[in-house]
Simulated scan of single mutants.
Amino acid sequence: MIKRLDVTDEAKKLIQELVEKHGELMFYQAGGCCEGTQPQCFEKGGFYPRMNDAMIGLAEGFEFWIDRDLFEYWKYAHFTLDVLDGFGPGGFSLETPLGKTFKVHYRLFTEEELNDLAPIVRSE
C-alpha cells in the first residue's frame, strides 16, 4: 500500500520534542479561516474532527486529520509534513511558542500509486 503521508526528519525531531512536553498528539489540517491550510498540532483530544473529515495517516504514530472539503480537493496528492522556522498564520498549534510552524508539501500521486493507496478513515 502507498502511504498518503510522510514526515521529514526535521518534523520528526519537532514531534518528539512536543511529545516530551505535551504527551500524545494529533494533527488537523483545516480548509481555511484563521489557520489557512497550515497543519495544526494539538494535544490528543484537543481538537475534534468534524463529521466526515479524513484521517490520511499517522505522523510518528499520531493521527493526521484533513478537513473533509480540503481532502476532496487534495485526495490525489501525497502529503509530506515538514517544519519551518517562523510563525504560522494561526498560532494555535503547539509548535508556535518554539518559533516553528508545520508545513505540508504536496505532490500528485502517479497513476500506479493511485491504484494502491492506503485507505483513509472518516470521522463519524
Rank of each mutant, 00 (worst) to 15 (best):
K3R: 11
L5G: 09
L5N: 08
D6N: 13
T8I: 10
D9I: 10
A11I: 03
K12F: 01
K13A: 15
K13E: 15
L14I: 11
Q16T: 07
Q16G: 06
L18S: 04
L18T: 05
E20C: 00
K21D: 05
H22P: 05
G23Y: 02
E24M: 08
L25C: 13
M26R: 07
F27K: 11
F27I: 13
Y28T: 10
A30V: 09
G32N: 03
C33Q: 12
C33N: 13
C34S: 11
C34F: 07
Q38G: 09
Q40C: 12
K44R: 15
G45H: 08
Y48A: 14
Y48F: 09
R50S: 15
R50P: 00
M51I: 12
A54H: 05
G57V: 07
L58H: 01
A59R: 04
D67T: 04
R68A: 15
R68Q: 14
D69C: 08
F71W: 15
F71L: 05
F71G: 02
W74Y: 13
Y76L: 12
A77D: 11
F79I: 00
F79S: 07
L81T: 13
D82W: 02
D82V: 11
L84K: 14
G86A: 13
F87Y: 12
P89G: 14
P89W: 08
G90W: 09
G91M: 10
T96M: 04
F102Y: 14
F102I: 03
F102R: 07
V104Y: 00
Y106D: 02
R107W: 01
R107P: 02
E112T: 02
N115P: 04
D116P: 01
D116G: 00
L117W: 03
L117K: 03
A118K: 10
P119T: 02
S123K: 11
